[in-house]
């Protein structure tokens, strides 16, 4: 079974983001970059599927600049078999990214294509469904877990108040969210072995980006807290404020 996992290089969720001098991008200096956590769920699911089936091949694909090779190496260290870097300037236009991925994956013979449900940097949630559309494949989004059996993928989706079970014929595109399994750590042996695994670099067929970021602004500073009073006497007022002002009760 040929499984492809699309991954994106994003700033660490713990990083302190500074806006660049142009006011439209972030300043990458001193920031640690990671595989977007939702893409890691996808990779973990792919590796588990391969392990459960006892055969298959997991290939990770990323659209990004040369630095994204670092995240592909991490994915190889976690256990992916091969990696493809589609080199091009990262774009916020999900369709441009999806087209680049589709050009690579159209003739790949993929049985299953996994994407994170969303990237934690620009949070557009576009690439997975657009990729499926471009490849004319069924798409199931926001999946917590799935099984592959008899040429089909059976997916669990968390919907309001319950679980929806969805089935699609393979090949298909599945986008993942946090499920039962935390992504594994790369083993130390895996890190050493990653060097010897193939990482292919190609020019991305990105096309023009039709979406442009005009400006980025940090969130407003949180206002200072307020002390309502002390002891049991303050409780009614606190409850009133939580109910009427904060509207959390």
């Amino acid at each position: 079974m040929k499984i492809f996992v699309c991954v994106k290089r994003v700033p660490d969720t713990e990083a302190r983001i500074k806006i660049g001098a142009d006011g439209r991008s972030i300043d990458p200096a001193g920031i640690k970059f990671i595989i977007s956590p939702y893409d890691e769920y996808a990779l973990e699911a792919a590796l588990r599927l391969k392990e459960a089936q006892g055969e298959g091949e997991v290939t990770v694909v990323s659209v990004g600049d040369a630095a994204a090779a670092e995240q592909l190496r991490s994915a190889l260290a976690m256990g992916a078999d091969a990696a493809v870097l589609l080199k091009g300037a990262p774009t916020t236009d999900g369709l441009a990214t999806a087209k680049a991925l589709a050009a690579e994956l159209a003739s790949s013979g993929a049985d299953l294509i996994l994407c994170g449900m969303r990237a934690v940097d620009d949070d557009q949630q576009q690439v997975g469904p657009m990729l499926a559309e471009l490849l004319d494949l069924p798409c199931v989004t926001a999946v917590t877990e799935f099984q592959v059996e008899g040429g089909k993928v059976v997916c669990h989706r968390e919907v309001e108040g319950g679980v929806e079970v969805v089935e699609a014929p393979l090949p298909a595109v599945v986008t993942t969210t946090k499920g039962a399994h935390e992504p594994r750590y790369p083993s130390l042996k895996g890190i050493m072995a990653a060097k010897k695994k193939p990482l292919t670099e190609k020019e991305a067929q990105l096309g023009a980006s039709r979406i442009e970021i005009l400006s980025l602004e940090p969130p407003p500073e949180r206002p200072a807290g307020r002390i309502v009073g002390e002891g049991p006497a303050a409780v009614p007022e606190l409850v009133r404020l939580l109910h009427e002002e904060a509207r959390v009760l």
């Binding site: 190496r73 991490s74 750590y185 790369p186 060097k195």
Partner: peptide, 12 residues
Amino acid sequence: DEERMIRDTVRA
């Protein structure tokens, strides 16, 4: 790169 990745893995 490998030395950093190994350290970061154990760190995490």
